[in-house]
């Protein structure tokens, strides 16, 4: 496997990870937005005051407030995925930089180092990208 191929592959993996980050960010944003909508509905909706009984209004406020907070908290899982992918991207970027540096140096001198980097990259790919 050539260095050029590895570099292209790393680019592809990094793009894939960025795409996943976008998805998770949008997903997390959607969840936060949904939770905020529920929270706003809980505290501002005029529906609860139809009967004019403060007890029912308070019950609705409490329930919908808890519901909104719960929905919003679900976005934490997506944020975790985002952070995970950013770490992977960072690792792939580091490997990519190292491989670019090796490509500029003489082949015979750094053949062993390049081979070690490729093995390391494949380990990372196996562990991070395919796990």
């Amino acid at each position: 496997m050539s260095a050029l191929t590895n570099e292209a592959f790393l680019e592809q993996v990094i793009r894939s990870q960025r795409k996943a980050i976008r998805f998770y960010l949008i997903f997390a944003g959607g969840l936060v937005l949904l939770g905020v909508i529920v929270l706003v509905a809980a505290f501002l909706s005029p529906l609860w005051f139809i009967t004019g009984t403060p007890i029912i209004a308070d019950v609705f406020k409490g329930l919908f407030g808890v519901g909104g907070a719960f929905v919003t908290s679900l976005s934490a899982f997506q944020i975790k995925e985002v952070l995970n992918r950013m770490e992977k991207i960072q690792a792939f970027e580091t490997i990519k930089t190292q491989m670019s540096g090796l490509k500029a140096s003489p082949r015979g001198k750094n053949a062993e180092t390049q081979k070690r980097l490729e093995e390391l990259m494949w380990k990372i790919v196996e562990k991070a990208a395919l796990s």
């Binding site: 496997m1 894939s16 998805f23 997903f27 899982f77 790919v125 990208a129």
Partner: peptide, 28 residues
Amino acid sequence: QIETLARNIEHRELLARRRAWLLSLVPL
């Protein structure tokens, strides 16, 4: 081989997204 590997990675990402959808959707 690289192409296959990239497809596998894409496929796994897709599965991960679906899993994220499901895991979020069930509590919702």
